[in-house]
Design a protein around this nucleic acid. Sequence first.
DNA 1: TCTTTGTTTGACCAACTGGTCAAATCAACG
DNA 2: CGTTGATTTGACCAGTTGGTCAAACAAAGA
Lengths: 200, 200
Amino acid sequence: MTKPPTRIQKRNRAAILTAGLDVFSQFGFRGSTLDQIAAAAGLSKPNLLYYFPSKDAIYTALLERLLETWLAPLHQMDKDGDPVAEIVGYARRKLDMSRDYPRESRLFANEIVQGAPHIANHLSGELRVLVEEKAAIIKGWSKAGQIADVDPHHLIFSIWALTQHYADFDVQVRAVLDTDDPFAGAGPFLDHVMRSILRP
Amino acid sequence: MTKPPTRIQKRNRAAILTAGLDVFSQFGFRGSTLDQIAAAAGLSKPNLLYYFPSKDAIYTALLERLLETWLAPLHQMDKDGDPVAEIVGYARRKLDMSRDYPRESRLFANEIVQGAPHIANHLSGELRVLVEEKAAIIKGWSKAGQIADVDPHHLIFSIWALTQHYADFDVQVRAVLDTDDPFAGAGPFLDHVMRSILRP
DNA sequence: TCTTTGTTTGACCAACTGGTCAAATCAACG
DNA sequence: CGTTGATTTGACCAGTTGGTCAAACAAAGA
C-alpha cells in the first residue's frame, strides 16, 4: 500500500542524495554531519529527516544505488568478444568512470578503506559472484593461449587499482603532476600496461 | 632547554602513537575519538592529553613520522643500477610495505582520499621533489633504450596503485579471493606486470 | 470554501566530543 | 624519611551531533 512519490518527494529525495554524495565522499560517513548535508541540499535538518529516517539510511541508499553503476563496466565484459579488446575495453570504461564519477569512487574508497562496515555482505555476495564469473572467462582465454597466463583475480584487481587511483588519490596525483588533466596521460599509459601484460 | 624524556614518557608516547595508528587507520581522523585512542593505549583521556596537546597533534605526529618510512623505498631507487631491476625492486619493496604495514597504508589512504587536509604541503613539497628526481632517472633509462618508453610519472603511480591496493582495499580483496594470503599471488603478478610494461 | 493530506520548521533533547583543571598520587633522589 | 617534580585522574565544561515533536504551513481535491 505504498503511495507513489509526489513531485516534491522526487525532487527532495534526489537533492538529498546528491548532497549526501558530495559530503560523504569528501568526509566519509562519520566525518559528515546531517547539518552539512541538509545545507548542501538546501533543506533544514528536520526536513531532511522527513525524507530519510536517519543519516545511516541516506548513506546506505547511496551505496546500494551506486553498486550497480559501479559493477556495470565489468558486467559488459563479453566472453565471446576479442579477449584483449574486452579486457582493455573494461579497463578503459573503468578509467572513464573514475574521470566522470570521482565522488562515487571516493565514496566507495572511504567505505572500503574503513573496512566496508555497511556493505560487507555485498562484497562477498554480488561482487564476489560477478568477479568469479568473469575470472573464469579470463582463465579460459589464458588456457586457449589468446592472452598471457596471468592470474585473473589479480588482473581484475590491477584494473581496479590503476583506474580508481586517479579518482581516489586525486590530490596526490595533482600535487605530483603539473598537468591540470591527469587523465590525459593516464589513458594511453593504461592501454600500454594492459596490452603489455596480456601479450602471450 | 628541553629535558630528555623519561622512561615513562617514552613508553606512553609510543603507546599513544601505536594506539592512534590503530584507531585512525580504521576510522579516519574525524571518525576517531580520543576516548577510543586512550582506551587502546591503556590510558585515561586526560592522561593522554598530558602527552599530546590535542587530537590533531597525535594525528600529525603519526603522519609526519610515517612520511619518511613511506618514501624510503623510492629513495632507494638507484640511477646507476640495472633499470628493470631497480624498478621491479622498488615495486617489490612497496608491496612488502603494504603487507607489513597495512595500517600505515590505510592511514595514508584515509588522509589522501579526504583531500589530504593535514599534509597537502608535504605532497607538493618533499613528495613532489622526490618523484620529480626519480622520474627524470626513469626518463633517462627510456631515452637510452634500456626500458620501454613509458611515462615515468604514471609508471610511479601504477606502482603505488598496484601495491597499496592490497592494503587499502584489503576487505574487498579478501571478500573476492578465497586465499587467506592475497600477497602470495600478488607478488608474482606484480613482477609480471612490471617486467611486461618495461620490456623495450 | 473547507478539509485532508503532505510538507516544513523552531525549539528542544540526550549523548558524545575535544579539551581543561585542580587535586591526588607516584617516583626518584638527596 | 621528606621533598620535588612527574604522572594520573575525577569532575567538569562548552560545543556539536543525530534525532524528536508539536505546531505551523502549503496543496489540492471535494
